[in-house]
Write a protein that binds this DNA or RNA. Structure first.
Lengths: 354, 354
DNA sequence: CTGAAAGCGCTAACAT
DNA sequence: ATGTTAGCGCTTTCAG
């Protein structure tokens, strides 16, 4: 009952063995292409398998070998272009090596992430790729370590958890962007992120995303070096909760008015761009805009948007390469790989009106 | 050797049973939350499990129950926003029901798809979600049917394969877009797709994507009804192979010059938009542009881009709901669900210059 | 080179 | 309510 399809049981190694008139072990050797089998027998087995429509059961194999040839990947949201790209990079190297990916979206929610970790471990993934929902709480990663399963973090690190990670040089990127704004003559520059954070940002606060944290540090230190007072006051977090639009509104013509905005990702950049447009605020004449992460559409807007670009594909690809190494039993000490960010200048930055 | 981590073997039901001083079956019942167990024993088992850091092996469970609580999803490319959205829709309803997703990218390559199907089946997915790489060759889907595994197609159908499918009304959408162009006064309107197709498009040709095929039909029949001669000549496929830019160039000022272009997806719309911009062709004054699939950036370009929008999330979600029904053993005849497309008018369409 | 048998971790009858 | 015993489909000693 409930048996879908023809109801015909799937052929197993035993069935093939019987038809080929060999032992189960021999059939398995021929089918699984291991051990030694004479050509004659191999042929006979193959024929029997074809005849029966034999399809291997990878789980049974995993049960006895201990290797599932499956990796787990836990990201914030596959709809976010950043994660889609990183995932594709990971999928490419995984597929190349004969591995599959089980995908879970955490929505940056530690509790969801925790469940995803448990499920993936239960499904015996050979290793995990995680863009941790929180850089502050190592708790979610502990089960992975306890299970002795290889783990590689990407996009964010989790201080205190001694595993491999692949990130980019966010601090340098932020510095670059900020210096560019400064060089153009801006003094009131806002940094905007959707990262959730209790209260306003204060110097020394630790943020739940190490990536954003690094960006903020690069931003603040650059403003500081330029002699700007209270640079922390220009850091605006919680843009999702407060509404990018409402925030942009304050930044555009409200009390916190600035002449330049640095968006922490392409989604925010888009919303700021839209907010400016809706308010008739001209970019770059009245507002300079720049951000992190390039996107195809950023070169067709008027003006194009200046960004610092990350090798997102490579982040996922490299993380997966490292994970595969670990799975194969590489005993090196964990390392954090830092990929570069590169500036792509377009037309959204200009000198502020005097 | 090769043993990563602490080397400590993972605790199993047997271990827990021993520590809790009960039989394996009882421990399993308590842990797996099935059968009947006294509260006292349940407690004892739970404590033992915690103490040992017991983590269930979902594969072993699958081996005996036959259910993996895992679905396979095979798409063209997770980086394509269309697939990312559909996948997210699928992941949401899957997670809600306690299912995971194994993701494979086919790159629209039937041979890659075939391998993905084999692997997913081997991994005992309970069902498959596939955006078939080719609507013309049912061959890749046969193994799924043979294995008696539920299958739901999305975005495209495969005539001749009697399974559920979730698509949108591409023909109506194309008609709507074409009528809009006609109403604006256009007579030379191009339809552009990256779909690979041997030779130029001729009336009656069957295309390898039923979605594009339907769009082409809606487009051609509308032109036809308006008395346009040889409407097929306005259908341009292979835009990837030929280069969207080169093609756009011909369409913009070359021999095939048109006054309006309908792009078959958001990626093409972007490239056409860019090509026009680079050539200094003004939209909508010199060229009207419209396309399929909405994207966030389409409302911030100058002008905004008019599109017919599909409920992409829902495509994936609905396909998954249906798949889950089938897995639970629903005996209904397979159905094709057709979701609506809705027009979103922005500024990229105007009357052609006389 | 081939076969017999044990075992991976769990669930499912079938007792008791 | 709890225990006993077979498996699920495959790989892997260990013999021969």
């Amino acid at each position: 009952m409930g048996e879908t399809g023809t109801g015909r049981r799937e052929a197993t190694v035993s069935d093939v063995a019987r038809v080929a008139r060999v032992s189960k072990a021999t059939a398995a050797r021929a089918l699984g292409d291991y051990g030694a089998v004479s050509d004659a027998v191999r042929d006979r087995v193959q024929r029997a398998a074809d005849e029966l429509g034999y399809r291997p059961n990878a789980l049974a194999r995993t049960m006895s070998t201990g290797r599932s040839h499956t990796l787990g990947i836990i990201i914030g949201d596959i709809e976010n272009p950043f994660f889609a790209k990183a995932t594709r990079g990971a999928a490419n190297v995984a597929a190349e090596a004969g591995y599959d990916l089980i995908l879970s979206n955490s929505d940056e929610e530690p509790s969801v992430e925790a469940k995803a970790v448990a499920v993936q471990l239960a499904k015996q993934v050979d290793g995990l790729l995680i863009a941790p929902a929180s850089s502050l709480e190592p708790g979610n990663l502990q089960p992975v370590l306890d299970a002795g399963r290889p783990l590689v973090l990407f996009d964010r690190t989790v201080p205190g958890v001694d595993v491999d990670a692949v990130i980019t040089d966010n601090r340098a990127g932020a510095r670059q962007l900020t210096e560019m704004m400064l060089a153009a003559g801006h003094r009131r520059i806002a940094f905007m992120s959707t990262l959730a954070h209790k209260g306003g940002y204060r110097a020394g606060d630790t943020l739940s995303s190490s990536a954003v944290a690094d960006r903020v540090i690069g931003f603040v230190e650059t403003l500081s070096a330029a002699g700007i007072a209270r640079p922390e006051a220009f850091v605006h977090l919680n843009a999702r909760r407060d509404g990018v639009d409402a925030l942009a509104s304050r930044l555009l013509d409200g009390g916190d008015a600035v002449t330049a905005i640095i968006a922490s990702d392409s989604l925010i950049a888009l919303e700021v761009f839209r907010a400016a447009q809706e308010r008739g605020v001209l970019i770059p004449q009245q507002l300079s805009l720049a951000g992190f992460d390039d996107a195809p559409w950023m070169s067709v807007t008027t003006p194009g948007i200046t960004v610092v670009e990350q090798p997102i594909h490579e982040i996922g690809a490299q993380a997966t390469r490292i994970l595969l190494h670990r799975i194969r039993g590489d005993g090196q000490r964990p390392e954090t790989t830092i990929l570069p960010q590169t500036l792509v200048e377009r037309g959204s930055v200009a000198s502020p009106k005097v």
